[in-house]
């Protein structure tokens, strides 16, 4: 079996969010970059677990990004996976990125393609669905549990205030979130081994860009908290009702 895991990088969850060049670029100076947590903790780890159960499984990682992606993809390889492919292109357009992943997936005949639920910077939640459509494969989004029995996958996905159990045959695209797996810390053996794992760099396939980021904007600062005395919660309720008018 072959699994393709989509990996992207994002600013650390505690990074300061600011913009430069007249609010058109993310201010990346001094920002620490990490593997997008949904890709790392859930998509990648679940793929590794499937390989641990069935050692004949091949786990390939794919990323679309510039040379600055390499430390991130090496870190992912330190957690697990056999080899990685970097498509040498930078884009924020989900259709362009999905087209690159689909082009690689077509060459590799993968049984399973895992993505994270979304990236924590652009919050698109679009790549999995787009890749599935480009490859004409079924797609199960926002999975909280993924099990495999032969070539049949049983997946639990989250719905509004509940969940749903789905069954589908491979090949399949799944976007993963909390519940699918648990975060793993790479060990020394993994880190050393990652250095020699194949990392193939390929040039992008021709694909259109359908969206562009025009500008960014920070939300207006909060006016500051209005504190109410602990012995007078009734005043808080009055303020919420009469001043904030939320109920």
């Amino acid at each position: 079996m072959k699994i393709l895991v989509c990996i992207s990088k994002t600013p650390d969850t505690t990074a300061k969010i600011a913009f430069t060049q007249n609010n058109t670029k993310f201010a990346s100076d001094g920002v620490q970059w990490i593997i997008n947590p949904y890709d790392e903790w859930y998509a990648l780890v679940r793929a590794i677990e499937l390989k641990e159960k069935d050692p004949s499984t091949a786990v390939h990682l794919i990323t679309v990004g510039g040379a600055d992606m390499e430390p991130i993809i090496r870190k992912a390889l330190a957690i697990g996976g056999d080899e990685a492919i970097r498509v040498n292109a930078e884009s924020h357009d989900p259709f362009y990125i999905a087209s690159q992943i689909a082009a690689i997936a077509r060459q590799g005949t993968y049984d399973l393609i895992f993505t994270g639920k979304e990236t924590i910077d652009y919050n698109g939640s679009a790549i999995g669905g787009m890749v599935a459509e480009l490859l004409d494969l079924p797609y199960i989004s926002l999975a909280t549990k993924f099990d495999l029995n032969g070539t049949t996958a049983t997946v639990i996905r989250e719905t509004e205030g509940g969940e749903e159990t789905d069954e589908a045959s491979l090949p399949l695209v799944v976007s993963c979130q909390k519940g699918v797996a648990e975060q793993r810390i790479p060990n020394m053996k993994g880190i050393m081994g990652a250095r020699t794992k194949p990392l193939k760099v390929v040039e992008p396939a021709a694909a259109e860009t359908l969206t562009s980021i025009v500008s960014f904007e920070l939300p207006p600062a909060k006016a500051g908290v209005q504190l109410v005395a602990a012995d007078n919660p009734a005043e808080l309720i009055r303020l919420l009702h009469e001043e904030a008018r939320v109920f």
Partner: peptide, 23 residues
């Protein structure tokens, strides 16, 4: 942009070669 929307909208965008904004 709810659970079902996240599952379907990206696929529809690809079929129509449409730019997609989620959220």
């Amino acid at each position: 942009n709810n659970f079902n929307g996240k599952a379907v909208a990206p696929r529809v965008a690809v079929r129509l070669k449409a730019g997609l904004v989620t959220g």
